[in-house]
Design a protein around this nucleic acid. Structure first.
Lengths: 158, 158
DNA sequence: GTCGCTGCAAAGTCTTTGCAGAGAG
DNA sequence: CTCTCTGCAAAGACTTTGCAGCGAC
């Protein structure tokens, strides 16, 4: 019973933290905190998925129809969030760009080429090896991304 | 000292071989071998670089102005080559999609976020680890791609 | 000669931008 | 009150498609 409460509180606190970071970022750049920006951040946080600008926009329209949020605002906010490194984007195949909150710990991606679903993983051996390679080749590594393409468990059954 | 190999100048496949594969592929699918298709393949081979459809088209226009190759043909041929897995594409950041011949052996990418240049590397430890992870998670791995973003040696001097 | 290919231009997508009114600070 | 944000629609950038003539086989 206490576990459930704790989980809930952890998530709430995490979001508050995220929201605070966002507000601070806005303030620092003389930008304004608007309901649209909050809703976009919140949706990214709650869904915890890789979303295209379009799917994010659809979700927001469905959940907050009164706001009538424009797709342009979604694009503008995602660019803002990406620039300030609060979200990261992932582009693959013909399927375009997908965004996810980047505040979580780093991870790499499995991408199913049939259903388009994305699973995440982290492997410390690979992380370590990447750092070494960059160092050996005199490359100043800022970031990296890794995708494994294939067929997920579900789609293998079909 | 290390098992990292770079393959900037490693043309493992002869052009004739490549061309034959291409011709065979076309024949098998009842497609025709045209001068435009040959020039596109040849340019990809000779440049041995990651090219956007646009830059590839520019190069061809400059080198074979009489052909007056259309950008549509470049797109169509790249799609054809990608479908048949003779080239692979790499998309990153806002810079769009780049294509390279995929007949060479597999490699991963360093991408310089300043000058946009791409260097290649292979690390057997990482390759091995990827295979293991896919297997453990029941993922049928078909391909993978890894990019390390950062600042290349040249741009660090500036 | 047949049927796929090509260049062109038009049409699609996806993303960005200009603008005038709305809203945060 | 000021100055940024927003939705809208128009404009851009990139890619695909329809078509009529061309060219490989």
């Amino acid at each position: 019973m206490s576990n459930i409460t704790t989980d809930f509180n952890d998530k709430t606190i995490e979001y508050k933290q995220l929201l605070d970071d966002f507000k601070q970022l806005l303030k620092k750049n003389n930008l304004k905190f608007t309901i649209q920006r909050e809703v976009i951040l919140e949706t990214l946080y709650n869904l915890d998925e890789h979303l295209t600008p379009e799917s994010l926009h659809n979700l927001i329209q469905k959940k907050f129809p009164d706001l009538n949020t424009g797709i342009a605002t979604v694009y503008r906010t995602l660019s803002l969030l990406e620039e300030s490194e609060m979200v990261t984007s992932l582009s693959f195949g013909a399927q375009g760009k997908k965004y996810e909150l980047g505040a979580k710990h780093h991870h790499d991606h499995f991408i199913c080429t049939i259903c388009g679903s994305i699973a995440e993983f982290v492997d410390e051996q690979i992380e370590e090896r990447q750092r070494k390679i960059a160092q050996e080749l005199g490359f100043d590594m800022k970031d990296h991304s890794m995708q494994i393409y294939g067929i997920c468990k579900n789609c293998q059954k079909i």
